[in-house]
């Protein structure tokens, strides 16, 4: 490719800079707001806070906004769901990827159909299932709803299973290993990179989900991060500085995950689109 002329480069950099400003203006404004006292917030506009060690807003939002409880509940949900989800996803991928049987295609089709159905709309009916199981307003409701594998997960796992040489299975069988042992000691470990990507993407999406906990766990004791900040903002809409502190704290976990594990996230996102 030829060399890009200088004025084109300049244009490219200025549009990029503009986009970065648009992305970071909102984040900057809550970042500085989070460290300001109430009076300071309403008087100082967008300038830097007087004191970056003013953590009053953070203390307040933790206490009144129940963020601590929110983080605790979402951690429990994530730990249980992700463990179960990885086991279920790898099991399905092993069964579908390594065995030929009559129901294989219909099962894939069922997963595809489930993907097409817009989840928000079927909540009316899902709600009745959750109630019938007696788990409404318990922490088990979101756990059950997040547990199942989705088609994206299965497609990604199946690609990985296909790339594991069948020789490995056959050698193990010569040595007398059972199918379960092959799954546990060959397939499951070799799916590691895919599992890492999927865990990260699922963590972000479950952490972000508002609708499921809002609908299925209205109890005060079962607040997760999304529902906690949602109900905190309701009656306290005036205190923009305290709200800013809450937003900043809630942003931190996924930003840290993203910065440390970008490679997996980009791989998962790009993979997902090619399906």
């Amino acid at each position: 490719m030829g060399k890009t002329p200088g004025y084109v480069r300049a244009l490219q950099y200025s549009t990029l800079a503009f986009a970065v400003i648009i992305v970071f203006f909102p984040i900057y404004s809550i970042f500085v707001g989070a460290f300001k006292s109430k009076v300071e917030f309403y008087q100082s506009g967008l300038s830097l806070p007087e004191n970056f060690f003013n953590f009053d807003n953070f203390k307040r939002v933790f206490k009144v906004g129940k963020l601590g409880l929110g983080f605790q509940n979402i951690s429990i949900i994530l730990a249980v769901t992700l463990t179960g989800n990885v086991i279920i996803g790898t099991m399905v991928a092993y069964a579908l990827g390594r065995f030929d049987f009559a129901l294989k295609k219909p099962i894939m089709a069922l997963y595809l159909i489930a993907q097409i159905i817009p989840l928000v709309t079927t909540q009316v009916a899902t709600f009745s299932v959750i109630k019938a199981l007696g788990v409404y307003n318990t922490i088990k409701a979101p756990m059950l709803l997040y547990l199942g594998a989705d088609v994206l997960q299965i497609v990604i796992y199946l690609q990985f299973v296909a790339s594991i040489p069948k020789d490995l299975d056959e050698n193990a069988m010569v040595e007398g290993a059972s199918f379960f042992k092959i799954y546990r000691s060959i397939i499951f470990p070799l799916l590691g990179p895919a599992t890492a990507t999927l865990i990260i993407l699922k963590t972000i999406s479950i952490y972000n989900d508002f609708y499921t906990p809002y609908l299925y766990m209205p109890s005060q004791k079962l607040k997760v991060v999304s529902t906690a900040i949602y109900s905190f903002v309701g009656p306290n809409a005036a205190q923009l500085n305290v709200i800013s502190a809450g937003i900043l704290i809630i942003f931190i976990p996924t930003v840290v995950i993203f910065l440390l594990l970008q490679r997996y996230i980009f791989a998962g996102v790009t993979n997902g689109a090619v399906k």
Binding site: F210, Y230, V233, I243, I247, F251, F258
Partner: peptide, 18 residues
């Protein structure tokens, strides 16, 4: 430029409310 996608969705909406 990808960063906004990983930010918490409810917190993002509230950020824009502010």
């Amino acid at each position: 430029l990808f960063l906004p996608y990983v930010l918490h969705s409810v917190a993002t909406v509230i950020m824009f409310k502010n």
